[in-house]
Design a protein around this nucleic acid. Structure first.
Ligand code: MN
Ligand code: MN
Ligand code: ZN
Ligand code: ZN
Lengths: 138, 138
DNA sequence: TAGGTATTGATAAACGTTATTAAACAGCAT
DNA sequence: ATGCTGTTTAATAACGTTTATCAATACCTA
């Protein structure tokens, strides 16, 4: 969907974007809902889903389709990569250079018009590492 | 989950693996169900889910967590990358060199113990390209 | 063959997301 | 200010995918 001229900047939209911009945790729609509800207790979950979707469509935020059962959202729209902890499911940014050239390599190797790519690393976060070390002593 | 010594090789398991191995289309659980049902008409959808999960756990197949609403399965377990058509959702292999070194780069740039990575390209497949060209003439 | 475990098919339940709808709201023209 | 018109909301129902439950069945081994 495109940005329509008669799309309004409602309080709900502003606050959803503000709350998402506050964190670097790539929250799920439900987590955004919880964050926003502290400021707008009467907001509906559907409103959060609808507006996250809308903002992702116009490019104000990113919708991440990473592993796990839920979609996640990201206020950082510049291209970058992510890690997902195999143990707890947490998603963090991986700040390494974006492989711009790889799209052309992929296009040559396929029948697709390549539009972009995303790298998802899998690993164990430092928190889960600590826990495992403690229990792995046995 | 690990391969248990008392895990049986049932007809259902064999046929699910055989059917998945026949295709390169990265089918969803439901699509595998349809394929398997032609040979085992009385199999339950739960059995398909259960065994795809099990085989992915022991590493006989891959469970792909790519974009879209459904998980997909892949009998090719060697590391490789994928494209997903933004238009029709089809998933294909991208046969380019696997970036082995990138895991170490990512590990240095993060607090994670990196275990692996996956690249998902997005693009438009040749089928959808043709359709769009035809309609885009107007 | 008999007993014990693993697995199945059927079905219900859970989960995340999307669709529906009446009411509320925001801008605009009178 | 009042009414008109289209947008958005909150509440809730519906949906599609996946997982859980469980009695019946199949398999293994002694
Ligand atoms: Mn990010
Ligand atoms: Mn593949
Ligand atoms: Zn973790
Ligand atoms: Zn396509």
């Amino acid at each position: 969907m495109e940005q329509l001229p008669n799309m309004r900047l409602t309080t709900q939209r502003q606050i959803i974007l503000e709350e998402l911009s506050k964190v670097t945790s790539h929250p799920t729609a439900n987590e955004v809902y919880d964050m926003v509800r502290r400021r707008l207790p009467r907001i509906g979950l559907g409103t959060v889903y609808r507006n996250l979707e809308l903002m992702a469509d116009v490019g104000v935020i990113l919708k991440l389709e990473v592993g796990g059962t839920q979609k996640r959202f990201d206020a950082t729209v510049e291209p970058h990569y992510h890690v997902r902890c195999s143990s707890c499911g947490k998603v963090d940014d991986i700040d390494i250079a974006v492989q711009e050239q790889i799209n052309q390599v992929a296009e040559k190797a396929s029948n697709y018009k390549i539009l972009g790519h995303h790298i998802e690393f899998s690993g164990i976060c430092s928190d889960c590492m600590g826990k495992n070390q403690e229990t792995d002593i046995n």
